[in-house]
Simulated scan of single mutants.
Amino acid sequence: MLKTIILLTDTVQQQQPLANLLREHNRELAFVSALRAQDLSAIDPEILSEARLVSFAADVAVPEKFLLQLGYGAYKFYAAATQYPGLPPAPDETDENPSCYSVIAQSMMIWPDFKKVVGLETVTVPDGTAAAERERLVFTRLAHLFWRMSIMIAGEVTDLPGIIGSVESQRPTLTMMN
């Protein structure tokens, strides 16, 4: 039974609104906050088998061992310019102003072949939009994707259905590594 959501966010201010939204769909959920990989390693391992990790706009590498212990999977919500799907722009290309972004919800797995996209939206930024406004537009769409998927995130489903992903549907386990 899903008992805990581990919220990994970029800022502490994002924690409470995300938890409140998920709590609307499952009042029994407990929440654990994390901002860094060290916060994840401090979580009591006993709760992980009944937990799901949700990374929202956080650029934190999650340890493989941690991912394998989660009973309800891990999902990452992030934005990427379509010119660089899944990757940040190269340092010498940061002065470009991309006009199209994807906001993506993706499973977090230790093996790339098992990852799948569970949510996807596109954001088109009008020409001449200032950088701060572009960031606000993209973040708003990312928050909308999270809101739209919140009922599934807070639910009992062990593995969210993919809209893009491998044909292999079995989640890797610790025994598969041995």
Rank of each mutant, 00 (worst) to 15 (best):
Q106Y: 00
G73A: 10
I110G: 13
S102T: 06
G71S: 07
S99L: 15
K116S: 14
W111T: 14
F66D: 08
E96A: 13
F66S: 07
P98D: 08
C100D: 11
P89S: 10
F114Y: 14
Y75L: 06
G119C: 09
D95F: 13
F114R: 12
N97G: 06
D92W: 11
P98F: 08
Q83F: 08
S107N: 06
Q106W: 00
R134A: 08
L120K: 12
P112W: 06
D113C: 15
Y78E: 09
A79Q: 08
F77R: 00
P89Q: 06
E133F: 01
R134Q: 10
P88Y: 03
A105M: 14
Y72S: 05
W111G: 10
Y101H: 07
Y72V: 04
A105S: 12
A81V: 00
S102G: 12
K116H: 15
P85V: 07
N97C: 10
N97V: 11
G86R: 07
D113L: 15
F66I: 09
S107P: 04
L120C: 10
A105Y: 01
P98H: 07
A130Q: 14
A130W: 00
Q83G: 13
E96H: 10
P91V: 13
Y72A: 07
L87Q: 13
W111N: 14
P126Q: 05
Y72T: 01
G73K: 03
L68A: 11
V118C: 15
Y78N: 04
A131E: 14
T94F: 08
D92G: 12
V125G: 03
A81E: 08
T124W: 11
D92N: 11
A80N: 09
A105W: 00
G128D: 08
P98Y: 08
F77C: 03
E93K: 12
W111I: 13
P91H: 10
G73Q: 05
D113W: 12
A90H: 11
L67R: 08
E133Y: 00
Q106H: 02
V125C: 03
D113I: 14
A74N: 02
E121M: 13
G73Y: 01
V125Y: 03
V123W: 02
M108P: 06
E96W: 09
F114E: 13
T94G: 04
W111R: 11
V117G: 03
E96Q: 12
G128A: 07
L120H: 15
K76R: 15
L70W: 05
P112I: 08
A74V: 02
L120A: 09
K116C: 10
P98L: 12
D95R: 11
P112M: 10
E93S: 11
L70I: 08
M108C: 12
Y84I: 02
D127Y: 06
Y72R: 05
G119M: 06
K115A: 15
C100F: 04
S102W: 00
K115T: 13
P126T: 05
N97P: 02
F66M: 09
P98W: 03
L120I: 11
I110R: 03
Y78W: 04
L120M: 15
V103C: 08
V103K: 03
P88S: 04
A90I: 09
P85T: 04
P85N: 05
